[in-house]
Amino acid sequence: MAHIPFSNEIKTLRFLAGEMTQGDLGDKVGVTRQTIAAIEQGRYSPSLEVAFRIAHVFGKSLEDVFRWQDDIP
């Protein structure tokens, strides 16, 4: 499994959005609940489109949701 060089705030954002479930977010974005779980846990690197869709659901910019890890060049 390749290391994904960025972290994300999806879990926090879901909580702040009225405790939205992974399934609800998946439905809004157009992916399965398992894919949202994999993205949250850093086991899957989403496409740019899905990343934008996730950010759009929360009304945030991409960098508010996904953060490049500083220690990685």
Partner: peptide, 11 residues
């Protein structure tokens, strides 16, 4: 519901 879902990009 899951059975009727199309493959997403991860799948």
């Amino acid at each position: 519901k899951e059975a009727n879902l199309k493959e997403d990009e991860r799948e």
